[in-house]
Design a protein around this nucleic acid. Structure first.
Lengths: 313, 313
DNA sequence: CTGAAAGCGCTTACAG
DNA sequence: CTGAAAGCGCTTACAG
């Protein structure tokens, strides 16, 4: 592959000069610049970012850790991060972990070894040491849809699950539901745990306790939309009707939730907005060579559709 | 961050020796190895893969270009690639392009500049020069669910859309459908184009022509499941019933297709298998320093569910 | 079995 | 405005 030297030789200048015109950082005379640009064109030269990174100590790459990329919410988040990232010349290394500690460890190692300029964590197992580990390796780290990790060096862009769960429970309570269950992933993960707690707290305020999912709930609150949609499938295969027999609520408002045949009542979360905000904060911190150390919590509205109805009597 | 030198100093050996134990490539005495390993542990040293890459001319990173990561088929593909990749010490740089030429150009530049060891292209706009460009930069490139690009240096892992479309048309024809339309993305993309052509050919064999989607088809074949599911939504919002009034067929068999409320007739494509095969071939080529130059076509079965029925009369 | 030396392809002060 | 020199953190023959 052609290198800076090839270009320099061809243009009859030094490699410093070629570097200067390519990065556009220093003033170069129009004539020299022209010669260099032509040489670049003729050779099809593309700078080797690996070499640049080694010297400049910035990889122009960020890492994104997601628990489940097959969930459109995380796909949306990750794609939205990518969009803004590529615009600013960053590439993104994605790692899908399913909250498996071994996958998380692998991902962490890969990101640290590649000296990513920052990482966005959108889900991690409950007692993972990875996020703090990143911080300790001087990698700015931002937690998205995830809080409860207590280090002030983190950036946190989160939504308010607690008040969202209050709205969900209120909605169901008003429809007459008293037997609510929470359907969550088999993985101990932050967002799920927090939503479960939020629901329990909202129930407690009404003098209620959650029931187990197999204990005949009249309403089921899913950890997320995918979970809720799968719950509908399970219920209807068992001969029950949603919402006549059981109401179901999701979380995220993925595009499918609005589909005629699904029409899921859910909490709307704007993955793209979360992504953009997180990336912006992360890049600013990375460029300044500091941690993000900033928190922001946004409210999420309840979207009522047709999977919730009056409690059966 | 600690470097090889720090570890070497601490262990009282040279950096060559540290390098040797870390890579495990050369025989090192147990005693020396022990000292080095302890120093690594004490310092929390993680090798800088950027520096390694520069010297060894292998980035241990591959690129994946997908047209739409929000489509669970591509999410599955990309996650499956990642799984095998991380196992072998590779990281993956994902680029979601939506078949936009500008996004494709950005992604191509980013991957070339980062000297990825190979790339898997799972969708690209019809006349993109990117795939050949990668090849010309000596980057082994494999096309997945995509053929028609005529360079023998490509690897191609594909499925047989033509015979799948024959099966789809046969199924609908036997149900009495004569007015079939194809619903596809607004983007000129390979897989969509090829499926459209496959359907047209199958119709032609029966003396039929496709009708336009607004021309009252009794059956609509989607470019993929997401397209088909969106079509169902559109039809039912317009007061039509699927399949009573219109039958709908998808492609991919994403998990949602099997959902009670969707029950989509579709063509099954195994993203995970495709991904594993592609990665395996790619890595072998990359390590051997050659192009993949290999093609493999697999058949895809039709899965009949409940979105197809007898043609209305 | 271990170490000294060169070099991967850039960037970055610093002279001139 | 342009260039020579040093160096980023590794790997890789090659001696010893």
């Amino acid at each position: 592959m052609t290198t800076l030297i090839d270009v320099a030789r061809r243009a009859g200048v030094s490699k410093s000069t070629v570097s200067n015109v390519i990065r556009g950082s220093v003033f170069v005379s129009a004539k020299t610049r022209g010669r260099v640009e032509q040489a670049v064109r003729e050779t099809g030269y593309r700078p080797n970012i690996i070499a640049r990174s080694l010297k400049s100590r910035a990889s122009s790459t960020i890492g994104v850790i997601v628990p489940d990329l097959r969930n459109p919410f995380f796909a949306d988040l990750s794609v939205s991060i990518e969009e803004v990232a590529y615009e600013l010349g960053y590439a993104v290394l994605t790692a899908n972990t399913e909250c498996l500690p071994s996958a998380e460890a692998n991902a962490g190692r890969a990101l640290i070894e590649r000296r990513v300029d920052g990482v966005i964590v959108a889900g991690i197992s409950l007692d993972s040491s990875l996020p703090v580990n990143l911080l300790d390796h001087d990698i700015p780290t931002i937690l998205v849809t995830l809080s409860g990790l207590d280090d002030s060096r983190f950036g946190v862009i989160d939504h308010d699950d607690e008040s969202a769960m209050e709205a969900v429970v209120d909605h169901l309570y008003q429809l007459g539901h008293r037997r609510l269950a929470f359907a969550w992933l088999p993985v101990p993960e932050h967002a799920g745990e927090r939503r479960r707690q939020g629901m329990e707290a909202a129930l407690a305020r009404r003098g209620l306790m959650p029931v187990r999912i197999d204990d005949g709930p009249t309403a089921i609150v899913g950890h997320n939309d995918i979970q809720a949609i799968a719950t509908i499938d399970r219920l209807e295969r068992a001969g029950l009707d949603v919402p006549r027999d059981v109401s179901v609520v999701g979380y995220d408002d993925v595009p499918l939730a609005a589909h005629q045949r699904i029409a899921l009542t859910t909490v709307r979360s704007d993955a793209a907005a979360l992504a953009r905000r997180a990336f912006e904060l992360l890049v600013n911190a990375a460029r300044a060579g500091r941690h993000v150390a900033y928190r922001e919590i946004q409210p999420n509205p309840l979207v009522i559709r047709r999977t919730t109805g009056s409690a059966p009597r």
